[in-house]
Write a protein that binds this DNA or RNA. Structure first.
Length: 708
RNA sequence: GGGCUUGUAGCUCAGUUGGUUAGAGCGUUCGGUUCACAUCCGAAAGGUCACUGGUUCGAGUCCAGUCAGGCCCACCA
């Protein structure tokens, strides 16, 4: 054996060995209960970052442990098309490399080229997973846009539409004018913004004075269709029903009463702009008020507003409107006002509430059983506190906007009759739609929110809705392991859709990992320059070291810090394993089994202690306390086995009377320790195993706590 | 506005049903080894476990409050 563990050369070689012997592909055995994890699919264009490395480490520990216990273990890898994110990414690339926009390329070509591009980037991403040691079953890998997965998506859409759980509606949605698409509520990033609250005078048509409304967005006044006050507000009681002249326009609007108006905010009178404010949209619904769109999908003032405002950007128009109102003496006062404004999660643009025609999932019927499943313990969360967060959101859940005005993704399976666009049908294919509508059809241009297909991931990856052998055997899956920041985006929706589509919970446990931060606990970001690139770490210290560095000293659901020092320390540990093995075998290449030698009292004591470690470690593994488990086996192997036991037995290996027994004891602990360490330090343990023992450690048997 | 959560060694963090001398990585000090170990070994310094009160035979661990952070959710114009 070499003097040290050469991870640069050995790790890839060992990974190939595992693939060659088919260690990642489980054998379907009806008599055994499988252990199944669906990998959270990284974006197909992703360069893996340190957060990916963490989930790989945690999930790989889980699957390696259960594989060692002899359970048919499936870890199913995948890649996500990441709709809007990928589209934005590829648009930038097009602009940079060819200087063209997606519109110049055209939809069909754009989609086609992005598909090709992703096939290539996806391979890079998958190879990065290999470098991290992910022991997932590549024979079953899936992509969200695979034909069978897409088919399942369309099937689900149709089923939900037919059962009244998906509907089309003219609703106010969060609109990003830069991305030119509507978003779901979850994709809105609320930020505190210092704005100005302007008090504007609206004159009564009968000349009896003014009503003063407070607004942060005067430019939307062209879309006002009423002014609302609280019905119990004594100040305005007699004014309800009167008519106001909307300044800068020729329109007249009524004063109405609605409960949602807060008497204590501003003047207690609010301008109602149904097309551009969610609350106002609801007020309008209750009072049958018209909606007037005054800002278009690109964030500019609409034609209907007229000169000189039409065509201006909303911010520009605001200045102009204020100036014009000022001239008319209609601005009472302006005060600074801090309020929370929605921004696009992807591009940071301030969002515009915007009425448009979108597809929605009626969520309440889905949420109820999903709440129940967690309440009754059919699904357990680790750590438990996320159950509260889950209930809190699920109990206040609102309908889900699933359509996106984006090109990249699953196209909404809705077809319109070309001769009459009001006639449409939901169908799994254009052919079907054509027959059903009796004429040429055109598919809806929208695509589905990426999270819609993600919500189906635990079962579409196994062949659902077909009743495949994989689906029958591996579903429901065992653990969903993911970062806590996508509990609503993903976990909650998988539970809802899993129950709806399959009638079963999609997994029986959710394990939340934290976010990875730098050595000072700072959020990792490019702009901060504190990126820790997992692949650079792998090259410098090995995947084993990186994994240990990410796992030890962390707890489920808590954020975890990485530092190069810590990773380096575990590089030394991987090397320590290598050298302990090297030393033992230097003296005795193969140990005899401990039941073939005469053990003295000290031997028995040492073995008993080891048995205790096996017991404690097993308990920690069963309880999903991997940080603790890693620390325990690290501590035992280095500071007990190496520092104490090997030191103590060193001389005995040359002593004829004791050499056999001493060698047997050392080999017994070494060999079994390699198994215990394997989930954490897969490469070094396998490298050593290959030098010393038969077969592969990846498929060895987890030891029991009794030494014999 | 509502909810969740953290405050443990110089730094970053573990410590899951309350139980003996509170742990790790990095850092610091001293000594040794360098024919298993890109080192390693031995030893040491360093903590009123935020604060106050309570429950208990016993609390870092449970409860209440205080102070100081972090995060998430939310249609107050």
């Amino acid at each position: 054996m070499e003097k040290s563990f050469n991870f640069v050369e050995l790790e890839p070689e060992i990974y190939r060995l595992w693939e060659k012997v088919g260690a990642f592909t489980p054998k379907i055995d009806p008599k055994k209960k499988p252990y199944v994890i669906t990998m959270p699919p990284p974006n197909a264009y992703d360069q893996l970052h340190i957060g990916h490395a963490l989930f790989v480490a945690v999930e790989d520990i889980m699957v390696r442990y259960h594989r060692l216990k002899g359970e048919p273990t499936l870890w199913l890898p995948g890649a996500d098309h990441a709709g809007l994110g990928s589209q934005v990414f590829f648009e930038k690339l097009l602009q940079k490399e060819r200087g063209i926009s997606r519109f110049e390329l055209g939809r069909e070509k754009f989609v086609d080229e992005l598909h090709k591009h992703m096939t290539a980037t996806r391979e890079v991403m998958e190879n990065q997973l290999r470098k991290l040691g992910a022991s997932c079953d590549w024979t079953r890998k899936k992509f969200t846009l695979d034909p069978d997965v897409s088919k399942a998506v369309y099937y689900t859409f149709k089923k939900m539409y037919d059962e009244g759980l998906i509907y089309r509606g003219e609703r106010i949605v969060n609109w990003c004018s830069k991305c030119a698409t509507g978003l779901s509520d979850l994709e809105v990033d609320h930020r505190e913004v210092e704005g100005t609250l302007t008090y504007v005078k609206y004159p009564f048509v009968d000349g009896s004075g003014f009503m003063v409304v407070a607004t942060t967005r005067p430019e939307t006044m062209f879309g006002d269709t009423a002014v609302a006050v609280n019905p119990s507000d004594k100040r305005y009681k007699d004014l309800i029903g009167k008519t106001l002249k909307l300044p800068l326009t020729e329109r007249e609007i009524p004063v109405i009463a609605d409960e949602v108006v807060d008497k204590d905010f501003g003047t207690g009178a609010v301008k109602v702009t149904p097309a551009h404010d969610p609350t106002d949209f609801e007020i309008a619904g209750r009072h049958n008020l018209p909606q007037i769109l005054v800002i278009d999908e690109r964030g500019k003032m609409a034609e209907i507003v007229g000169s000189p405002y039409a065509g201006m950007k909303a911010a520009e128009a605001r200045e102009k409107v204020l100036a014009d109102l000022e001239k008319l003496g209609l601005v009472e006062k302006q005060v600074k006002h801090i309020h929370s404004v929605g921004h696009c999660e992807k591009c940071g643009t301030m969002l515009e509430p915007f009425v448009s025609r979108q597809w929605f999932v009626k969520i309440e019927p889905l949420a109820k059983p999903a709440i129940e499943a967690v309440k009754t313990g059919k699904i357990k969360f680790i750590p438990e506190r996320f159950e509260k967060i889950y209930f809190n959101w699920m109990n206040n859940i609102r309908d889900w906007n699933i359509s996106r005005q984006v090109w990249w993704g699953h196209r909404v399976p809705v077809y319109y009759l070309v001769s009459d666009k009001e006639k449409f049908v939901v169908a799994e294919s254009a052919e079907e739609a054509k027959i059903s509508l009796g004429g040429p059809v055109e598919q809806d241009p929208d695509t589905l929110d990426t999270w819609f297909s993600s919500a189906l991931w635990p079962f579409t990856t196994l062949g659902w809705p077909e009743s495949t052998p994989d689906f029958k055997y591996f579903y429901p899956t065992t653990v969903m392991e993911t970062a806590y920041d996508i509990i609503f985006f993903w976990v909650a929706r998988m539970i809802m859709m899993g129950l709806y589509c399959t009638g079963k919970v999609p997994f029986s446990m959710v394990f939340f990992n934290g976010l990875v931060r730098d050595s000072q606990g700072q959020k990792i970001s490019k702009s901060k320059g504190n990126i820790v690139d997992p692949l650079v770490m792998v090259e410098k210290y090995g995947a084993d070291a990186l994994r240990m560095g990410l796992i030890v000293g962390t707890a489920a659901g808590n954020d975890t810090n990485v530092s190069e020092d810590k990773i380096r320390a575990y590089r030394n540990f991987a090397n320590k394993i290598w050298n302990a093995a090297r030393f033992v075998t230097l003296k005795q290449p193969k140990g005899v089994a401990i039941d073939k030698v005469e053990l003295n009292e000290r031997d028995k004591e040492v073995l008993k202690e080891f048995g205790g470690v096996v017991g404690t470690l097993t308990k920690l593994m069963e309880d999903y306390q991997f940080g603790q488990a890693g620390e325990l086996i690290y501590e035992y192997f280095w500071h007990t086995f190496c520092d104490k036991i090997i030191e103590e037995y060193k001389n005995q290996l040359d002593d004829n009377a004791r050499s056999k027994a001493a060698g047997a004891v050392l080999h017994h602990i070494l060999k079994n320790s390699l198994i215990l360490l394997h989930p954490f330090v897969p490469f070094a343990t396998e490298a050593v195993w290959q030098e010393l023992y038969d077969g592969e450690v990846i498929t060895a048997n987890w030891p029991t706590s009794r030494p014999n």
